[in-house]
Simulated scan of single mutants.
Amino acid sequence: MKHPEKITEENLTALMEFILLDFAEVPHLQGFLFGLFLIIYIIILISNGTIFLITKLDPALQSPMYFFLGNFSFLEICYVSVTLPRMLTNLWTQRRAISFVACATQMCWILMLGTTECFLLAVMAYDRYVAICNPLHYPLVMNHKVCVQLVAGSWVSGVPVQIGQTFQIFSLPFCGSNLINHFFCDIPPVLKLTCGNTSVNEMIVYIVFLLFVMVPFLLILLSYGKIISTILKLPSTRGQAKAFSTCSSHLIVVALFFGSGIITYLRPKTQDSAGTDKVLSLFYTIIIPLFNPMIYSLRNKDVIMALQKLLWK
Rank of each mutant, 00 (worst) to 15 (best):
L193K: 05
I169P: 01
P189M: 04
R128H: 03
T198M: 12
G114V: 04
W155P: 00
N197P: 01
V146I: 13
H182R: 07
L210R: 10
T89R: 15
L88H: 07
V151K: 06
L219A: 15
A97S: 13
M112G: 06
P139V: 08
P139W: 08
S199Y: 06
V159N: 04
P135F: 06
T166N: 09
L222H: 11
S99C: 01
S157I: 14
I98H: 00
R128L: 09
V156C: 05
K145A: 15
L172D: 02
K145I: 13
A131F: 12
F174E: 01
I132L: 15
S157W: 10
H182T: 06
P173S: 07
R95D: 15
V130F: 09
N143S: 02
A125Y: 04
P85F: 09
P189E: 03
I169H: 05
S171A: 14
Y126E: 06
I220M: 11
V146Y: 03
S99T: 14
G176R: 08
V146S: 01
V151P: 00
P139D: 07
N181L: 11
P188L: 11
S177I: 00
V146Q: 05
T115Q: 12
M142G: 05
D186G: 10
C175R: 07
V141M: 07
F119S: 10
V213T: 15
L191H: 04
